[in-house]
């Protein structure tokens, strides 16, 4: 018996389209205030298919002002910190010697914990021979989940005021991603731990910058970091027309693509001040963002 298998061309194309992997795009910057959130929001609104937005700038999440999601779930996120059971402690000091962050100390017959110094590694629980430590909790913030009117899945972290450790909360935000076809990650500024945790494991990172000495200075640091993390990246130049062309020459020299230039425009700034995304007030920009998301999808 012979079977002739014929695959129609149309199906082949459909199969190709379905094969495009879900894409995680991180929007980062180095320098603060360059327009990460504006770009991230514009991208989310321009992407096709299921889209999810993760606001990982947990110290000051602000994408919600533009996307206006309806929050339906709010979770407390906390870290495990040691609490001493006084009558069991024999003041041996093993927990103190283990702790790299000086979050627990012992002298004479006194043991003290500093919960806000604790990085929740769990080492003290392991080394205590007396089982004199029990698990307490330090609230670091909340994760909020919802959906926008346009059906974009929305997750944001909100760091507790006074809390210094953003990374665990950022990880909690990312862990709640449902792996939609397009995941947009709005990252915190800077190039320290919170920014690293946010961009890590992204398929692509868009670096939003501006053509100023400050923009270039921080861009250089961030591109170095992304090379180390092996995250491919390109630049969105915001406030184009301001400053000079040093940054563009630098990108050209380093072979870093500049995907999009957003003009320094009063219209965009006025919309921003009202919580209106730039793609709503500028059709050319809307088209440009649609092209951008297709371009980085390749």
């Amino acid at each position: 018996m012979h079977f002739e298998v014929v695959v129609p061309e149309a199906d082949e194309e459909a199969a190709d389209a379905a094969e495009i992997d879900p894409m995680k795009v991180a929007i980062a910057s180095g320098k603060g205030g360059t327009g990460k959130t504006s770009v991230a929001v514009a991208l989310a609104l321009s992407a096709q298919g299921s889209v999810e937005f993760l606001d990982c700038d947990v110290e000051e999440p602000n994408a919600h002002f533009f996307l206006k999601p309806e929050i339906r779930l709010c979770e407390d996120i906390s870290l495990e910190v040691p609490v001493v059971i006084q009558e069991r402690c024999n003041y041996c000091g093993k927990c103190r010697d283990m702790c790299r962050f000086n979050a627990i100390t012992v002298f004479g017959e006194t043991i003290m914990t500093f919960p806000d110094m604790c990085h929740s590694c769990g080492g003290c629980f392991l080394v205590c021979p007396q089982e004199a430590l029990e698990v307490g909790r330090r609230l670091i913030g909340t994760v909020e989940l919802g959906t926008t009117g346009r059906g974009i899945g929305f997750v944001q972290g909100r760091l507790r005021i006074g809390e210094a450790m953003a990374p665990p909360l950022i990880r909690a935000v990312k862990a709640r991603s449902t792996d939609s076809r397009t995941v947009i990650i709005d990252c915190p500024p800077g190039t320290s731990c919170p920014a690293m945790v946010a961009v890590r494991d992204a398929d692509y990172c868009l670096l939003v910058t501006e053509p100023t000495p400050f923009g270039l200075h921080d861009l250089k640091i961030m591109t170095g970091v992304l090379k180390r993390l092996k995250v491919s990246h390109g630049v969105v130049l915001n406030r184009a027309g301001l400053g000079d062309d040093t940054l563009e020459h630098w990108c050209l020299d380093k072979g870093i693509p500049i995907h999009l230039k957003i003009p320094f425009s009063r219209k965009i700034a006025e919309a921003y001040a009202k919580g209106i995304p730039m793609t709503e007030v500028d059709k050319d920009l809307r088209d440009a963002f649609t092209r951008l998301i297709l371009e980085i999808g390749k």
Binding site: G32, P194, F214, D218
Partner: peptide, 8 residues
């Protein structure tokens, strides 16, 4: 940590 950002 937030340093350098004119708008931060």
């Amino acid at each position: 940590r937030r340093g350098g950002g004119a708008f931060r």
